[in-house]
Computed example of a mutant assay.
Amino acid sequence: MKQEIKELVNSRITEDGMVETGIKGVSLFKVTNAIPCAPAVYEPTVIVILSGKKEAILDGEYYVYDNSQYLCCTVSLPVEAGTPNASPDEPLLGIYISLDTKVMTELAIEMESSTSVVKLPKNSSQSPGMSLADWDDTFSDALLRLLQLGENKADIAILGESRLRELYYAVLKGNAGISARRAFGIGNQITRSIEYIAQYIEKNVTIDELASLVGMSRAVFHRKFKQATRMSPIQFIKSMRLNKAAMKIAEGMNVSEAALAVGYVSSSQFSRDFKRMYGQSPKQWRQSTDLIENIV
């Protein structure tokens, strides 16, 4: 089944880059050049690799995955991502599937309400916001059925949403299910707080404000947030700001504008924090990314 999926994708993307499938949130990508890991922000998504390897780094922890596992990111996360091993002989080929938070929430709550589904352990710790999951038959079958819609606009219009929903359900049932159901199901306070941070990244959001938003004490919020993201709220906000700024600079925005866009009032403080995190100044970063083409 994996081979059939790979052939479908290969037939639709012949050059480096990303290609929309026509199905909302589903894209195909191909990379034949090695790209070192660089700052990025992963939104809620599933990334499926069909050939080659991809890397993502979250707070110093490496996630290296290929066609044996897919990556599931359930919340917005500041990461470093790249394809350091891609080459013309061994290209990276894959599928990017954005997770619709509304649909995922509906499914997760339906699953938790169903007597036929095993409940999550009440006293288990919150799973990380990013995890690797083995392909299983349910996931493979749902992915194949989704891609078999091809480019037929009528098929996509009529069946696209239902087949995407089927894939989401496969994710929720699979190895990444605990992480996904905690993020999107009942009691998804940490996800809501991260959405709030992302929405107001340019503002001085405090921990007390976030804890109050989700109805937790400061101490409980801090603990649950770190369980979900591997970072404290302060570390997370700083990483998210700097990663977003690095992406804006790589896209051509000047350093001062990028700093202001993510909430830095002082350009000198921004430069110090940037160099501390990435080992080079914002201007050096821009020069080093001139030849790097961004990919998911």
Rank of each mutant, 00 (worst) to 15 (best):
I23A: 05
D100Y: 10
V171W: 04
R286Q: 15
E112Q: 15
N85L: 14
T138S: 11
Q227K: 01
S266F: 09
E209N: 08
A38Y: 14
D208H: 12
R165M: 10
V9Q: 04
I234R: 12
M130S: 08
K238Q: 15
K244G: 01
R276E: 15
L164Y: 09
R272V: 14
E7V: 00
L147C: 02
E257K: 14
L8H: 03
G25N: 11
Y62M: 12
K119R: 14
L147T: 03
S98D: 12
L58R: 03
T105L: 02
D16K: 09
I197Y: 02
A228L: 06
G279D: 10
D89Y: 07
Q269G: 09
K53E: 14
N204K: 13
S125I: 08
S281W: 03
D155S: 13
D89C: 00
T191H: 14
Q227T: 00
L107Y: 03
R223C: 02
S113D: 13
Q199T: 13
E4D: 12
N254S: 08
L99P: 02
N10I: 00
A246W: 05
S268V: 10
G22D: 10
C72L: 12
G52W: 04
E195Q: 15
Y70M: 09
S76A: 13
S125Y: 09
E110T: 07
E110N: 11
F236A: 03
T229L: 01
K53C: 05
I207D: 05
E80K: 14
I292M: 15
I190E: 05
G263W: 04
M216H: 09
L210W: 04
A183T: 07
E166N: 12
V214F: 01
F139L: 08
T206H: 10
K6V: 02
G187A: 07
E20K: 14
A157H: 13
I249E: 01
K226E: 13
V64Q: 10
R286P: 00
E43D: 11
G177N: 06
S239A: 15
I237G: 05
I35H: 08
S131F: 03
V296S: 01
L28G: 03
R276D: 13
L58D: 01
V255H: 04
E112P: 00
S212K: 14
S212V: 00
